[in-house]
Every structure is written in structure tokens, then in C-alpha cells.
């Protein structure tokens, strides 16, 4: 049985009155991640919006331990924490590396690839708000084609985003999954499953960001749903190499059709001047990925 609003644990590990923007998708995700970990974890966090959410010295807005680390070092720092806990006999604590897409797809990818190749005993969670948001919405390797950022200001980004979960899958790690704060039960269940596995576990979260994507904060959950319903973001997990669509993506694969990507893009100011050709290109990109996902999906 999938977890629901009535069966999610009550305890919160994120305190009210934090520094994240109103309507931040990361906030929703962080709540349910920490619930799934039951608080028995150490977070390793590089420079990112999560640093800001975590709070300014000397007060913290979360009730789990956080080790802040240098921007490129997340996975390596976390594997050090894991190694330290191992030699000290404290392996009951889950080491969670949690970084933005810039910290994951770009500057941190070397450390992440190294840790994954060594199968370091960490759960790595990338929350993908599709840009360097806390430094003011610059383009990242995960920014989608057509999205305007402060470093792709006129035409929008001209390249497709990196497929980071696929990069991680190519490292043959025990668990790769995607999730979205708009589907908290699915997110919660995946983190819970990942928590009980050993080795490198990678999760990639779609994290709608009202300030960077330029939409009304009230629409965060709707944007996350539309990302999945248009197929721009797929919910799946890869366990020991077996690919499975989950939650809403699985339901859509079984029956129904994806919504046109335009419905998702047009709600966001960052795509306001995207050319029709760019939107068509995104649609084609989605179609190809969706086709491949359905082919790969194992019940």
C-alpha cells in the first residue's frame, strides 16, 4: 500500500519559520524525506537553497544534523561521513547527501561519479530546481531547453538537460529513482526503500521553484503534477538494473495519454519567450523518452 496523507508519519524535522521562499517545492520534499528517514540520518549539504533553508548561524530550521560541505564535494564528503561511521560502529545512521542540480549535474558530478563507482554507502538526493537558484537563477546542466535564466537571458537555454539518473544508472548502483514533491507518498516510499539498501543510492527529485521558474507560489504542486502528466519528468525507479515506472507515470503508461508539454511550459515565466520550434523540440524529446520508458517498464 502506497503511503498517503493519512499514513505519513506525523513528526516533522523541518521547523516553521525557515528561510525558503513561499511555496518552495524543496520544502515539501524535505519534509517527506526526513519523515521517511525517521530522523536517523546525517545530512551532507553543499552550497544551495537547502543551505539557506537550513538556516543562518547560529540557528537551524531543521532537527536533523547537517554537515555543510564545499560545493563540489557533496558525495565525497558524504562517503567520508559513511566511512567514519563505519569505523566507529555507527552504521545505523543513514548518510544522506542532498544537493541541488548545479551541485550534482555540474560541479559535483566528479565526486558523485567517484562515490558511485566505489559504491559508497550513501543516499544521494538531488533536488532539481533546474538552475543555480540560490545565486540568482543561473543556467545549470539541468536547465531545460528554452528556459530563460540570468545566464541564458534572451533566447533561453539552447541545449537539452543532462540525464543525471541515466548517468548514475551507468554506474550500476543498487538503486536509482526519481520522485516529486507533488507525489509525496511515492517520494516517501522510495526514500524508505532506499534507506534500507546498502551502497550508493541515487534519487533525483523534480523541485518546482516559484522564484526561478517564475510562476505563482500557489501553483507549486500543480507544476509538479503537470511535469509528470506531460512527461517532462518521469516517476520511476531502477532497482538492480530493473526499470519500473511508478505512481502517476505508471498509471499514465497503463492507460491515458500525456498532456502536451505546452500546458506545463506556459505556466512558467521562464518559457515566456520560448520559440515554437523550441517547444516542439521539447515535445519531441519528451515523446522519445516516454517511448523508451514504456519499452523498458517492467511490471
Amino acid at each position: 500500500m502506497a503511503t498517503t496523507a493519512l499514513t505519513l508519519p506525523e513528526t516533522e524535522y523541518m521547523l516553521p519559520g525557515n528561510r525558503a521562499c513561499a511555496g518552495c517545492g524543496l520544502g515539501i520534499a524535505f519534509r517527506h524525506i526526513t519523515k521517511a528517514l525517521d530522523g536517523k540520518c546525517i545530512f551532507v549539504v553543499p552550497a544551495s537553497c537547502l543551505t539557506v533553508l537550513g538556516g543562518m548561524y547560529p540557528t537551524s530550521s531543521v532537527t536533523v544534523p547537517i554537515m555543510n560541505c564545499a560545493f563540489p564535494s557533496t558525495a565525497a564528503s558524504a562517503s567520508g561521513v559513511a566511512a567514519g561511521l563505519k569505523v566507529l560502529g555507527r552504521e545505523d545512521t543513514t548518510v544522506v547527501a542532498m544537493a541541488g542540480d548545479g551541485g550534482t549535474a555540474d560541479i559535483g558530478i566528479q565526486a558523485l561519479s567517484g562515490a558511485a563507482e566505489r559504491n559508497a554507502n550513501i543516499l544521494y538526493i538531488c533536488y532539481d530546481n533546474e538552475g543555480y537558484m540560490n545565486t540568482g537563477t543561473q543556467r545549470s546542466g539541468s536547465t531545460p531547453l528554452g528556459a530563460k535564466t540570468t545566464t541564458s537571458p534572451a533566447l533561453g537555454k539552447c541545449e537539452f538537460p543532462k540525464d543525471v539518473p541515466a548517468i548514475l544508472e551507468a554506474h550500476h548502483i543498487p538503486y536509482v529513482a526519481t520522485a516529486s514533491p507533488s507525489y509525496p507518498g511515492d517520494l516517501y516510499d522510495k526514500v524508505k526503500k532506499a534507506k534500507d539498501l546498502r551502497g550508493t543510492r541515487y534519487m533525483h527529485l523534480n523541485a518546482p521553484c516559484p522564484s526561478g521558474w517564475q510562476f505563482a507560489p500557489k501553483d507549486t504542486v500543480e507544476l509538479g503534477r503537470l511535469a509528470v502528466e506531460t512527461g517532462v519528468f518521469l516517476l520511476y525507479e531502477i532497482e538492480d538494473g530493473v526499470f519500473r515506472l511508478t505512481s502517476r507515470s505508471r498509471a499514465l503508461a497503463k492507460q491515458g495519454a500525456l498532456k502536451p508539454v505546452r500546458e506545463f511550459l506556459e505556466l512558467q515565466g521562464r518559457f515566456s519567450s520560448a520559440a515554437d520550434a523550441a517547444i516542439d523540440a521539447v515535445q519531441e524529446w519528451v515523446n522519445q523518452r516516454w517511448k523508451r520508458a514504456i519499452e523498458r517498464h517492467a511490471e
Binding site: 521547523l15 519559520g17 528561510r19 538556516g55 540557528t59 537551524s60 532537527t63
Partner: peptide, 19 residues
């Protein structure tokens, strides 16, 4: 403190209801 460490606090960013 000899290195920077924070402790949990409700309202870390102040009374965000003001926003």
C-alpha cells in the same frame, strides 16, 4: 564555539507570517 554550529529554532528566519 570554535567552529560555526547551529541549533534548531522555530522561526529561524523570524516570524515568516510577516511575509
Amino acid at each position: 564555539q570554535e567552529l560555526a554550529m547551529s541549533w534548531p529554532k522555530v522561526g529561524e528566519a523570524g516570524e515568516t507570517g510577516d511575509w
